[in-house]
C-alpha cells in the first residue's frame, strides 16, 4: 500500500489526518515539523508527503524546497495544508515545488478524495 508522510505541528490535525488515511489502508508516518519530516524522509521513501505550512523550526514551504532538491523526492507528490484565505500561500507552496494543496478546514472524505487524486 502507498506510504504517506504526514507533517503538522498540531497533534490533533496530525492524528486526524493519520487516522483517516490509515483507515483507508495507507501506511502513514507522522512528523511534527519540517526538520523532523526531512530527517524521516531521507531515510525512508514515501509515495506522498502531506505537510502543514505554518510550523515551528522548519515550515512547510522550506520542507517542500528541501525535499524537491533530493533526487528521491524529485517527482513525489507533495501536498500542502493551507487555509482558504491564504491564496498567496498556495502559490508559495507551488513555487517551492508542491504538487497541490488541501484547503483547511477539510473533512476526512475531502482528504481521501484529494489523496486519491495524486495516488490514484
Amino acid at each position: 500500500m502507498a506510504s504517506i508522510l504526514a507533517v503538522d505541528d498540531s497533534a490533533s490535525m496530525r492524528q486526524m489526518v493519520s487516522f483517516t488515511l490509515k483507515g483507508a489502508g495507507y501506511d502513514v508516518t507522522e512528523a511534527k515539523d519540517g526538520q523532523e519530516a526531512l530527517q524521516i524522509a531521507k531515510s525512508n521513501s514515501y509515495n506522498l508527503v502531506i505537510t502543514d505550512i505554518n510550523m515551528p523550526i522548519m515550515d512547510g514551504i522550506t520542507l517542500t524546497k528541501e525535499l524537491r532538491s533530493l533526487p528521491a523526492y524529485k517527482f513525489t507528490p507533495i501536498l500542502t495544508l493551507t487555509t482558504e484565505s491564504s491564496g498567496e500561500k498556495k502559490m508559495a507552496g507551488k513555487q517551492a515545488g508542491a504538487t497541490g494543496w488541501i484547503v483547511k478546514p477539510f473533512n476526512p472524505d475531502q482528504l481521501l478524495a484529494t489523496v486519491k487524486k495524486v495516488l490514484g
Binding site: 511534527k32 505554518n54 510550523m55 515551528p56 523550526i57 522548519m58 515550515d59 514551504i61 522550506t62 491564496g87 498567496e88 502559490m91 508559495a92 513555487q95 517551492a96
Partner: peptide
C-alpha cells in the same frame, strides 16, 4: 495570479529555529 509577491512573502514567513519552544 499574483506571481510577484509570493517569493517575498515566503522568505519573510520563514521562521528561524524556535528556541523558546524547545520541545
Amino acid at each position: 495570479e499574483a506571481v510577484a509577491a509570493p517569493s517575498e512573502i515566503a522568505s519573510k514567513a520563514k521562521p528561524t529555529a524556535a528556541k523558546k519552544t524547545a520541545e
